Simulated assay, not measured.
Amino acid sequence: MTHNRRKKTMKGTRNSIDDQRLSGETHGCGSHTDPCEKVRCELEEVREEIAHLRRTLHRIQQIARLGYWKASLKENELFWSDVIYDIFGVAPETFTPSIRAFKAMVHPEDLESVEAGMWRAQETGSHDVEHRIVRPDGEVRWVHELADYAPEGDEQILIGTVRDITEQKRLELRLRQLSRTDELTALFNRRYFMQRLVQELARYRRYDRPTSVVLFDFDYFKRINDTHGHPAGDQVLMSVGKLLREKLRTNDIPARLGGEEFALLLPETALEEAVGVAEKVRQLVLEQTFTSEEGHSFSTSITCGVSSFHGPEETVEAILHRADQNLYQGKRAGRNRVVADERNG
């Protein structure tokens, strides 16, 4: 009887194992011999790996501020990845992407170039444009779109990416400002002044619009440095820089040419009006009072030379030469004055 019970027990054990195999109750995919269960476990592992890759891809897109999109030009349909919603400052729950909705967020000044790029893509096969967007909160950001034109039957499909390049644009703007700005006075530097002077001469030759130039420097500036120290001299230069930025028109070009030498490029300004501007600047400088590090008060003055474009043979060299000659004529006549071209010149 003991032998028969042992047989029954062993048989019961085998039946229990078989039942577990059929019901899928064994622990760990690696221990299964059932093909269906093995496939199920492998599919689950693949799903987990895909989910992990998606999370990784999403994280990479967030770090790079890069999203991907697909647009149907024919159907006005647009798909956005999650990061693009963040770039545009909208929520997936409340915003439905479409080409019309996208265009409504493009900065009005950039919309024409964006639309031109989309239509050009149908000819060249690629879409590459940088533009601004205006988010619902009013913030303006820069984006860079890259896409391929991939027609599917009669569908007009663009597939591409969009990257937030706002910080890059801010850096570019800062570098551009540094390349054309005098560090001490925050005015334009000589290089930029000369570039703009050439441009204004070309405009004058084409449209015959009046343009004038004022050159000025400080009277006895070396005496300020020798008496009150170089920090006092820098204070004077910075002060006149601030004055010019505040008092001139936005389209005027005030520049520091070097040392204590300054220039004003005055578009749309005839000689008589330019003399008035120079006289105003001269008077404002004269009225200022400065204080040295030792507490001594002092003032200073400037002498200005003014000249205007005139005649079809006008050159940059000629107008600068005339303004310079007028300035030194003022120096010889006693300083602290404005000297201009002869009115009939």
Rank of each mutant, 00 (worst) to 15 (best):
Arg223Thr: 12
Leu184Trp: 08
Asp18Gln: 15
Arg176Phe: 01
Ser81Arg: 04
Thr211Gly: 04
Lys242Ser: 10
Gly295Phe: 03
Arg135Val: 07
Arg40Ile: 15
Gln156Tyr: 06
Asp128Lys: 09
Gly229Cys: 03
Glu314Pro: 05
Cys41Ser: 13
Asp182Gly: 02
Gln62Phe: 02
Gly153Ile: 08
Asn225Arg: 06
Leu73Cys: 08
Asn189Ile: 04
Leu22Val: 13
Glu268Asn: 08
Ala150Tyr: 01
Thr26Phe: 13
Ile319Ala: 04
Lys222Ile: 05
Thr289Asp: 02
Asp226Leu: 12
Ala101Pro: 07
Tyr149Ala: 03
Arg135His: 05
Glu139Lys: 10
Ile165Arg: 03
Glu172Val: 10
Tyr192Thr: 06
Arg6Ile: 14
Pro97Ala: 03
Ile50Asn: 09
Asp34Thr: 06
Val240Asn: 02
Val114Pro: 03
Gly24Glu: 12
Val134His: 01
Thr300Cys: 09
Lys222Asn: 10
Gly330Tyr: 02
Tyr204His: 12
Gln122Ile: 03
Gly160Asn: 09
Cys36Ile: 15
Val285Lys: 01
Val240Arg: 00
Val277Ser: 04
Tyr207Gln: 11
Gln325Phe: 00
Val114Ala: 10
Ser16His: 11
Gln62Leu: 13
His228Arg: 00
Tyr68Val: 08
Val236Glu: 05
Ala202Asn: 14
Asp217Leu: 06
Cys36Asp: 13
Arg332Ile: 00
Asn189Ser: 05
Glu272Lys: 13
Gly12Ser: 13
Asp19Val: 09
Glu317Pro: 02
Ile157Gln: 07
Arg65Phe: 00
Gln195His: 07
His3Trp: 08
Gly330Glu: 02
Gly138Cys: 07
Glu112Pro: 02
Glu172Lys: 06
Arg203His: 12
Arg209Val: 13
His27Cys: 08
Glu293His: 08
Tyr149Ile: 07
Ser212Thr: 12
Asn344Val: 12
Pro108Phe: 10
Asp341Glu: 14
Glu123Met: 10
Met10Glu: 15
Ser16Ala: 15
His144Trp: 15
